[in-house]
Amino acid sequence: MPSFLERVGALPTLGLGVSTEYGAGQQAGALDPAALRRDHPDFANFLEVGVEIVKGLDDDARAWAARGWANTYHFLDINLDEPEDFDDAWLDAVRRTVAVLDPAWLCGDAGLWHFGGRDRGQMLLLPPVLVAEAVTPMADGIARLREATGREVLPENPPGAVFLGDMHLLEFFSRVAEAGDTGLLLDCAHLAMYQRARGHAPLDGFDGLSWDRVVELHIAGGRELLADGLRWVEDDHGTAVLPDTWEIACAAIARASNLRAVVVECERNAIAEVVPLFERARELVAERFAGTGEFA
């Protein structure tokens, strides 16, 4: 099998896209991805579909895929470092979902999506423990999911208010990507949370990342909160994107030589509210994605 850096050339350039999760579009005032594509084609070149197998795909995601429009599959329910989590029933359901969507690749937060078994009331999302011992199990899970689905699997740095382990998050994910021979999804908002939580500047640790493996970026709003004197950022996917997130996105776009996609995560907001976010993101990526999709 060719290495990822050889395989990445076959991945399509998707451009600027938008994300959704099951039922997100049904909430009052929420974003309708198809309407966004109709009204602003260059903001919705593809849809990142958040999938929790027990919930399945909603009508918006199915309709998008049925039109043959580009999409990616964002998993929301696999602890990649737990071999027991790859049970046959779940894998079969993932393969069926992949067959419906025909996504360009799979991606998702490489963290703890559920405690205990995969069961009702046990879903959450915690970042990985940033220690050397966590690298191989995570990389093995990525390779296993890639083999099971026949699609590239891009791990994403998860959000968090608590980060454990002494390795820098970017070094950790760089090691995971190399060990799993895969690409990366860098969530700029999640990275901004990490950098703040650890007292780092937004671009600290950038030299430790294999930027040629970064295929996708996420940009999203975050809300600064104060609890008992602790300042932290809630990953609310709102309309207020932190300056740190924009700074990270700008620097990442300049470095990520194999960048294929940028998602603005804002699924629970009205289109009119998020147009400024997409406009700013479009400015950042216009040069990189010139000649592809709606940028052509």
Binding site: G121, A161, A197, L225, L230
Partner: peptide, 25 residues
């Protein structure tokens, strides 16, 4: 030792976590 370094305030940023689980039970 890794866990002892956690700021206890960071453990309670999701103040509905236990309530959601209790609801399921």
């Amino acid at each position: 030792a890794v866990l002892r370094g956690v700021d206890p305030r960071g453990l309670t940023t999701d103040d509905m976590r236990r309530a959601r689980a209790l609801h399921v039970i």
